[in-house]
Nucleic acid binder design. Structure first.
Lengths: 213, 213
DNA sequence: GCCGGCATCGTCCGAACGGTCGATGCCCGG
DNA sequence: CCGGGCATCGACCGTTCGGACGATGCCGGC
């Protein structure tokens, strides 16, 4: 980082109200300075390519449809050796968290985090540390503690097709399996998710962030 | 309304950052005053029952799991002749919009709305007018233009429960209907969405933005 | 006043689904 | 080498679901 005592922050969120809130919270700290606000991932990358200097980027993962995803932005920023990326998003879905961390995010916070956590995370990210919110930490630990509960790749593949509305027969054809195998996979999925039916399994998987969307 | 020139506003949102943002935006207006902030629907109702006076409530529909839903809060506030309710939420799903409006919300805005729209909506709601954001208006107009194709509120209600993984019997009990009626609604849904099954209908509805998620 | 859309309820039946038992083969780790 | 997780397949049976009828009542528009 700059070595200076002041942390320069860029806010990247498509909600003006959230940006205002983040700015208000951060500027209450004497050692934090908001140097820019952007409303899309494209704008963020453009500004960084244009020479914008910062220590930390507060990045929302969800932007409007049809645009560049937040995770792609993380990958790009990390690849170009840009500022530390602190993901601040609404959802604590496993898929999002894993994708962001894998892409190189320095931290992952939820928007419902208290303000002091937010500020602490910004300072930590600027200092080169990793900053995961308590809720996020709990989620990651939960995954490690219960490896037998996680769906296998094959089971997830089947479940994804179920979520698209395919019938067991269609899934069997799509994956070159017999109906019996599809059913077996689904039985395991129901067991692991504690769901009594295919629709319930899809709902639960969505809730846990195992499926995109 | 108080008849005074100043609009008293209550902020109800479980995200501290969003509350801060809303407060900052609104307090920049001389004729708007934020008289309270709450982080849950229960707290909101408790404060109102406790004598909190306000002209407008800015209410998020999504609160943490296990809690009272935002729509229930709307119903309760309207039933007790409380302040005007302005829903400010993240999603523009038909299900949410229809449910909130039906429950008696005075307006419906998205969180990605520019700040001037937000302020205008607060003033409109305080003046007894209805305030729907442009994106919300577009959605409702789209429904009017294609009346034969759009799902009715009841059909959407049933479909939402299907999306949660409920069985027809459970849905029937939840909505005080017979299984036959639930099935009839679903047949209409399948017909309108061109879906051959419940899971396919849910997938298609998600694709079209009829369900949140 | 009548017609059409909406919501409600009922029955019958075939197809899809879920639950339970079984089996085989593979590969990895103790 | 042997147990266990994973993937694959088969058969049986009860339940749920979907499809196709019909029926009633309400409301709003022509």
């Amino acid at each position: 980082m700059t070595g200076a005592a002041v942390v320069d922050v860029v806010l990247a969120d498509d909600h003006p109200v959230v940006r205002t809130g983040l700015r208000a919270v951060l500027e209450a700290e004497p050692d934090v300075r908001v140097v820019a606000e952007v409303g899309s991932a494209e704008e963020l990358l453009a500004r960084l390519r244009g020479g914008l200097r910062a220590d930390v980027v507060l990045l929302d993962l969800q932007f409007g449809p049809g645009r560049l995803g937040g995770v792609d932005a993380v990958r790009e920023i990390v690849a170009t050796d840009g500022p530390a990326v602190l993901v601040v998003t609404t959802y604590d879905a496993d898929a999002d968290i894993l994708a962001a961390v894998e892409a190189g995010a320095r931290g992952y916070l939820l928007k419902d985090a208290p303000t002091h956590e937010l500020v602490a995370a910004v300072r930590a990210a600027a200092a080169g540390e990793v900053a995961l919110g308590p809720a996020v930490q709990r989620r990651l630990l939960g995954r490690l503690r219960s490896p037998g509960t996680a769906l296998t790749a094959r089971e997830l593949e089947v479940l994804a097709l179920v979520a698209e509305g395919r019938t067991n027969d269609e899934i069997a054809h799509a994956l070159f399996l017999s109906r019996a195998t599809v059913k077996t996979h689904l039985v395991h999925v129901y067991d692991k998710l504690g769901a009594p039916s295919r629709t319930a399994a899809v709902a639960e998987a969505r809730r846990r962030g195992l499926l995109r969307g």
